[in-house]
Simulated scan of single mutants.
Amino acid sequence: MQELPGVGLVERARAVAPLIAREADEIERSRRLTPSVVAVLIENGLYRALLPQSLGGAEAPIETFMQMLEEIAKADASTAWCLGQCSVCAMIAAWLDPDTAQEIFNVAPGILAWGAIAHEARSVEGGYRVTARWDFASGSRQASWLGAHVRIVEADGTPRKNADGSPEVRTILFPVASATLHDVWQAIGLAGTGTDSYEVADLFIPERFTAFRDVPAALREPGPLYRIGTGATFSLGFAAVSLGVARATLDAAIALARAKHPSLAGTAMRDNQAVQGLIGRTEGDLRAAGAYLYATAHTMWRDLCATGEFSAAHRSAVRLAATWTIHQSAKVVDAAYHMAGATAVFRSQPFERRFRDMHAIAQQIQARDTHYEDVGKAILAGG
């Protein structure tokens, strides 16, 4: 019997988590996912969670994708971040012609990574030429292809405009061998993501290796997943990563409290009423954040499947839920870290890396405070 889309992804993520946890120290030290971790993610089809079924991907419902990332994040945040980044990048296949998508995603390892929007590509016969350097390419060290989001200019340098007067932006795709990667990711957290910079010089990009990412009218795939677009999917995925990190950190604090008898204290940590109360409140905060995030995703997905529309209201709801969940997860991690006392500062303990990883997540674009302003503006406007 053929497996249903997305079935088994969460279970497979849970099954490979112990191996990832064992590799976490080496991932941190080398600032790369280890070969064994990349191999097990590929073998279990986790990188293909959001790839269209027409290409052999899972095309998983959004909640399944989120749960998959949450399970991996409990073992190692860097692995979950890279998996989330590259999985969402694979959604670009829904905007490509089938032969091009096959060449990118069905030739091993079939992994795509990209960074932030920047720079221009000049229109030439048959495609575009570009010389540029981009940052923040999480997962690039495992990728076989790279992408970039660029503004298009004509041969004479005139910016190309959309019908509404906005700059035309395309996503260009090219083999990783065409680029130079710069090892620049020396960061407080998410050290293992290898979120490096990459550069190309006078590179020709054939027209078929470009796409109007996140433009519904340009879609070639009918599934509801691709109506959400990559931006909102990144937000939901990385919010789920933050929940996984928070869950693992709080669980570590609970385990410590059950066993620890602090020096100079009259009672065991588990018998301390202040600790008991803090654990109860923090557990409630984490469960509330998870319930809110998944309820928002569920409602959006239900409506999307019924109507085929990812509305402005859905976009605003996702942005608010994802931003708040990341911030709430950071508060949970902070509470667990402080609860652990001096134990938390040692690298041999399960706290300090997660503390750093969580605060690196909270600095990303998906957690910007300005999202609250955008949502508040929409609410005040009656949206």
Rank of each mutant, 00 (worst) to 15 (best):
residue 7 V to K: 14
residue 7 V to Y: 12
residue 9 L to H: 05
residue 10 V to P: 04
residue 14 R to V: 09
residue 15 A to K: 14
residue 16 V to K: 01
residue 30 S to L: 12
residue 31 R to T: 13
residue 31 R to W: 11
residue 32 R to P: 05
residue 36 S to K: 14
residue 36 S to Q: 15
residue 45 G to L: 05
residue 45 G to T: 01
residue 46 L to C: 08
residue 46 L to N: 00
residue 47 Y to D: 03
residue 47 Y to L: 09
residue 49 A to L: 07
residue 52 P to C: 03
residue 54 S to P: 03
residue 59 E to L: 03
residue 60 A to W: 02
residue 60 A to E: 00
residue 62 I to Y: 04
residue 63 E to N: 12
residue 63 E to I: 11
residue 63 E to S: 13
residue 65 F to I: 02
residue 65 F to G: 00
residue 65 F to A: 01
residue 66 M to F: 01
residue 68 M to C: 14
residue 69 L to Y: 06
residue 74 K to Q: 15
residue 75 A to T: 05
residue 79 T to K: 07
residue 80 A to P: 08
residue 86 C to Q: 00
residue 90 A to R: 10
residue 91 M to S: 01
residue 92 I to A: 12
residue 93 A to T: 05
residue 99 D to Q: 14
residue 103 E to D: 12
residue 103 E to N: 09
residue 106 N to S: 09
residue 106 N to T: 08
residue 108 A to G: 06
residue 111 I to N: 00
residue 115 G to T: 06
residue 116 A to R: 12
residue 117 I to E: 15
residue 121 A to K: 02
residue 123 S to I: 10
residue 123 S to K: 13
residue 128 Y to I: 03
residue 132 A to K: 00
residue 138 S to R: 01
residue 138 S to Q: 08
residue 141 R to P: 02
residue 142 Q to H: 11
residue 146 L to I: 01
residue 146 L to D: 02
residue 147 G to N: 04
residue 150 V to F: 02
residue 154 E to M: 07
residue 156 D to S: 08
residue 158 T to V: 12
residue 172 I to C: 00
residue 173 L to C: 01
residue 173 L to M: 13
residue 176 V to G: 00
residue 180 T to R: 14
residue 184 V to R: 09
residue 187 A to W: 06
residue 190 L to R: 09
residue 190 L to E: 07
residue 195 T to E: 15
residue 198 Y to H: 06
residue 199 E to W: 05
residue 204 F to I: 03
residue 205 I to V: 15
residue 213 R to V: 13
residue 214 D to Y: 04
residue 214 D to R: 03
residue 214 D to Q: 05
residue 220 R to I: 04
residue 222 P to R: 08
residue 226 Y to K: 00
residue 228 I to R: 03
residue 230 T to D: 03
residue 231 G to C: 07
residue 231 G to H: 05
residue 233 T to N: 05
residue 235 S to A: 14
residue 236 L to W: 05
residue 237 G to W: 02
residue 240 A to R: 00
residue 243 L to C: 11
residue 247 R to Q: 12
residue 248 A to D: 06
residue 251 D to V: 05
residue 254 I to A: 07
residue 257 A to Q: 03
residue 258 R to G: 15
residue 259 A to H: 09
residue 262 P to T: 11
residue 264 L to D: 11
residue 265 A to G: 04
residue 268 A to P: 07
residue 272 N to P: 01
residue 280 G to T: 10
residue 287 R to H: 15
residue 290 G to L: 08
residue 297 A to P: 00
residue 297 A to S: 12
residue 299 T to P: 01
residue 305 C to D: 10
residue 305 C to V: 12
residue 311 S to E: 06
residue 313 A to M: 11
residue 315 R to E: 12
residue 316 S to T: 09
residue 318 V to E: 01
residue 324 W to R: 13
residue 329 S to Y: 02
residue 330 A to Y: 04
residue 331 K to A: 14
residue 332 V to T: 09
residue 333 V to I: 08
residue 335 A to Q: 08
residue 336 A to H: 01
residue 338 H to G: 06
residue 345 V to H: 10
residue 347 R to D: 11
residue 347 R to H: 09
residue 352 E to W: 09
residue 357 D to I: 02
residue 360 A to F: 09
residue 365 I to E: 15
residue 366 Q to A: 13
residue 368 R to M: 15
residue 371 H to Q: 08
residue 372 Y to R: 10
residue 373 E to R: 10
residue 374 D to I: 12
residue 376 G to D: 14
residue 376 G to A: 14
residue 382 G to E: 12
residue 383 G to W: 07
residue 383 G to V: 09
